Amino acid sequence: MKIEAIAEQYKIELESVYGGEEASALFGLAVEYVLGLSPVKLKISKNHSATFVEVQKLLSILNDLKIGKPIQHILGVAHFYGAVYEVNENVLIPRPETEELVDWIINDHAPVRMQNLKVLDIGTGSGCIPVSLKTYLPDFDVKALDISPEALTVAKRNAELIGAGVEFIEGNILTYESEMKFDIIVSNPPYIRELEKAKMHHHVLAHEPHLALFVTDEHPLVFYQAIAEFALKNLNPTGHLYFEINEYLGEEMIKMLAGKGFKNIELKQDMQGKDRMIKVTISDETV
């Protein structure tokens, strides 16, 4: 069967669900996974014929996509900051805005070339944040915390596969205590309010872990408050606290952090112009 014919079938059956452009992108990911054809090679290989087994794999992926299963869960992998991560239903699929958060931290600290800075990622999920930081800041001592043992299993495998020496800790940040001190604390905690569910794509609601996504409408900053309190006790005087945040709650975050005495509060927008990241310190003096 010609690749061009399968591409047309993907377009016809997925366009009403995802739109034409995304349907084409999903087909490209499927073909790269099954046939090993990059997007560039795919453009010049429309007359390429797929074997029976390859066709069956592509059609199986198509059937899963039609019921809203994320392509990353179908393939079992997601791309993040130049590496490939294992993902499944126990972890959030890494997002581009989280790549921007990682990039912010790396750009802040790589030029200084300070060795042995201690880092803690809270709510690590797939491990994409700490593994990326350890990869690009190899001299740093990187740890990661998560409440889910299933998520930690995935994160540990990702660290091993990518070759990043990250220490993983099972714990609930709402009750977790430690005597350890850190120079960088980073978190992308649950921040989507129940009232925002109606705006979300059904495949996220059906296939991604709600534990890592949602907070109540009454207490949307519950995890940020807990992490901020932890940072007040466990962040070194010249350290930095980084958050990925709900785009609608930037002002509330600034007010909360200022109320707890944090300094140098910097709200940063992502590439789509949304309030998505915050950096703060506990001291006016930073390195």
Results as ranks from 00 to 15, higher is better:
235 L>G: 05
235 L>R: 01
235 L>A: 06
236 N>T: 11
237 P>E: 03
238 T>N: 15
238 T>C: 13
238 T>Y: 12
238 T>I: 10
238 T>D: 15
239 G>A: 07
239 G>R: 07
239 G>T: 08
240 H>S: 11
240 H>G: 01
240 H>A: 07
241 L>A: 00
241 L>K: 04
241 L>I: 01
242 Y>E: 04
243 F>D: 06
243 F>P: 02
243 F>A: 02
243 F>L: 05
244 E>G: 00
244 E>F: 00
244 E>L: 05
244 E>K: 02
245 I>H: 10
245 I>C: 13
245 I>V: 14
245 I>F: 11
246 N>M: 10
246 N>E: 14
246 N>T: 12
246 N>C: 11
246 N>P: 10
247 E>T: 04
247 E>V: 07
248 Y>W: 11
248 Y>E: 11
248 Y>V: 13
248 Y>L: 14
249 L>T: 07
249 L>A: 11
250 G>N: 05
251 E>H: 12
251 E>W: 01
252 E>W: 11
252 E>R: 07
252 E>F: 15
252 E>L: 14
252 E>V: 10
253 M>L: 04
253 M>C: 08
253 M>Y: 00
253 M>V: 03
254 I>F: 09
254 I>P: 00
254 I>G: 06
255 K>P: 09
255 K>M: 11
255 K>V: 13
256 M>Q: 03
256 M>C: 12
257 L>F: 08
257 L>G: 09
258 A>W: 12
258 A>I: 06
259 G>V: 08
260 K>P: 07
260 K>E: 04
260 K>A: 07
261 G>Q: 00
261 G>P: 02
262 F>D: 04
262 F>V: 03
262 F>N: 00
263 K>M: 06
263 K>V: 02
264 N>L: 03
264 N>P: 08
264 N>T: 02
264 N>W: 04
265 I>G: 01
265 I>E: 05
266 E>Y: 12
266 E>M: 11
268 K>Q: 07
268 K>C: 02
